[in-house]
């Protein structure tokens, strides 16, 4: 498979202008959130954060192709997927501020909490897809992971499992060029991660991950295939992580500025803007409104996050088991009385 075979959006518009405007809005909003989150971390007002800048099209294009009932198993960088699938921005921020209430999606939102150990969420999606198949549900599972995850055993075990069992599942790989410092060319010998699907008898598709329409169409096709009993698909969205791996990382240690500049020219938001301009659907008035609205939503989410009451010890003890074991109840009492004493000492 050559680079030429990467799917890009076709000339013929298959996505309505309304949808393209929605994509733009979401990408713009998530980029603002992302930049604000990085800034908050720098100010010591947020914990270590994994930025998504550059991957907005891959995340939003794919998430918009999902149906509300579909079950999403993300890695740790899919803030835009989470938001599109129904996770409030405030909770996304709470998670990165070290709080479990940020890992809890609202009732009815089929989104698993962030998965930090690489590739471990992939088998979960296989299980959820198997359950959907056994129960005859009109539901598919989707799992998100990066290029680094494709070297892990869990990726291969789950790919094989899903293919053998013909599960309604989409494996969505955001190949953002790097696993922390390791470039994709040192991660895998194949040119395209999508080729790995072949070994499991599965269809693999590579798509331009910075082309939001192309991502959306590829995902919509894979979702429809999975939902109609056609089995799993591996989608590789070729994109680029503009920032560092996390706020604790410094990408300038391992990659050239020229490379980053090259990818800046392929910016997914700029490309969506150009597509809208071609359709005559990008007026200054419209975009000003969009940006103002995004700013309001992001600011509100940050304020909501900051005004959340402090965590209590309930979050530590109450959900280890459904019914708290006796010994744990004793330990909770110890911690509560220690906390009360600490408060009285501080006056």
């Amino acid at each position: 498979m050559s680079v030429d075979s990467i799917r890009v959006s076709q000339k013929e518009p298959q996505v309505s202008t309304d949808m393209l405007q929605r994509m733009y809005e979401l990408m713009w909003m998530m980029r603002q959130l992302d930049r604000r989150a990085v800034a908050l971390q720098r100010q010591g007002r947020l914990g270590t954060y994994a930025p998504l800048e550059g991957q907005e099209a891959a995340q939003i294009g794919s998430a918009l192709a999902l149906r509300v009932q579909d079950f999403v198993f993300p890695s740790y960088r899919e803030h835009a997927v989470a938001y599109v699938h129904g996770m409030p921005l405030k909770r996304i921020l709470l998670y990165w501020n070290g709080r479990y209430d940020g890992a809890m999606p609202p009732e009815g939102v089929n989104l698993f909490p962030v998965s930090v150990p690489i590739a471990t969420q992939i088998p979960h999606a296989a299980g959820a897809a198997l359950a959907a198949k056994l129960r005859g549900l009109d539901q598919i599972a989707v799992t998100y992971f990066g290029d680094g995850a494709t070297s892990e055993g869990d990726f291969h075990e789950a790919m094989n499992f899903a293919a053998v069992m013909e599960l309604p599942l989409v494996f969505f790989c955001q190949n953002n060029g790097y696993a922390i410092s390791l470039p994709s060319r040192k991660q895998t010998k194949v040119q395209r991660i999508a080729e790995k699907a072949t070994a499991y008898g599965m269809e693999g598709v590579t798509v331009d991950g910075n082309d939001v329409i192309a991502v959306y169409l590829a995902m919509r096709e894979a979702v429809a295939k999975a939902a109609s009993g056609g089995g799993p698909t591996l989608i590789e969205a070729v994109t680029y992580r503009m920032g560092s791996h996390t706020t604790a990382d410094d990408a300038s240690r391992y990659r050239d500025a020229s490379e980053v500049e090259m990818w800046k020219a392929r910016d997914p938001i700029l490309r969506a803007e150009n597509a809208l301009r071609e359709r005559g659907a990008f007026s200054e008035e419209w975009v000003t409104q969009v940006r103002k609205h995004a700013e309001e939503i992001v600011t509100e989410a940050i304020l909501d996050m900051q005004s959340e009451p402090p965590v209590t010890l309930d979050q530590l003890f109450d959900h280890v088991y459904r019914d708290m074991p006796k010994e744990l109840a004793i330990q909770k009492q110890e911690a509560l009385s220690r906390q009360a004493k600490g408060e009285s000492v501080r006056g």
Binding site: F71, F73, F112, T120, I122, P123, H124, A125, A126, G127, A128, A129, L130, A131, A132, L134, R135, A141, G153, D154, E157, A158, N160, F161, V164
Partner: peptide, 28 residues
């Protein structure tokens, strides 16, 4: 075969898939 299921030889997938099964309404 849908109640008593042979899986590929993959322990992490067996346990990992059991999580997905459990959260999606089955008792594995």
């Amino acid at each position: 075969e849908t109640r008593v299921m042979d899986t590929p030889l993959a322990e992490a997938a067996i346990i990992g898939a059991s999580i997905g099964l459990a959260v999606n309404g089955m008792i594995p």
